[in-house]
């Protein structure tokens, strides 16, 4: 069968809604009946990426592709881009502003967690243009 496609717009001007899209995809995957472990990985990875998108890039768009074999998620933003991807991938490295640190974000675990919980991860970033984060989790 064809892959199911899902799309979410992530508004950048309302921080209180950050994480909503991840919750929606999670409920969707649960309904289909994917294994809890698969859903857990996808939702943690997507949550991290979605929060990043709101904190650093003023929101963006998320496209998901679901097949019985794997779940792939692409997050596109038009933010400032990441100057040094290798540095950003290091655990504990963060450029999050103070106002979100007080909410418990900015531990520098976002990108490392995406890598940890997914089977494939790619980052394409252009300074001043934006960043695309792609990841997939195998379902079987």
């Amino acid at each position: 069968m064809e892959a199911i496609k899902v799309h979410y717009d992530v508004p950048g001007d309302d921080f209180t809604r950050a994480g909503e899209a991840s919750g929606m995809l999670k409920r969707y995957l649960k309904k289909i009946g994917f294994a809890p472990d698969v859903i857990r990985k996808v939702s943690i990875a997507m949550y991290e990426a979605e929060i990043n998108m709101v904190i650093h890039a003023h929101g963006g768009e998320i496209d998901g592709e679901i097949t019985p074999e794997k779940i792939s998620v692409t997050l596109r933003d038009q933010g400032p881009g990441i100057p040094d991807v290798d540095l950003a991938m290091q655990e504990g490295y963060s450029t999050a502003p103070d106002n979100v640190r007080s909410l418990g974000f900015g531990a520098g675990m976002g990108l490392p967690n995406i890598k940890k919980y997914t089977d494939e991860m790619k980052i394409e970033t252009v300074l001043g243009k934006g960043t695309t984060v792609y990841f997939s989790v195998n379902a079987q």
Partner: peptide, 21 residues
């Protein structure tokens, strides 16, 4: 008791989900 899931068969569940959408 995952009574909310659509089908035990993942492919079938996905087909149902596509129809629901």
């Amino acid at each position: 008791a995952p009574v909310m899931k659509l089908s035990d068969n993942l492919t079938q569940a996905m087909e149902m989900m596509a129809k629901i959408d």
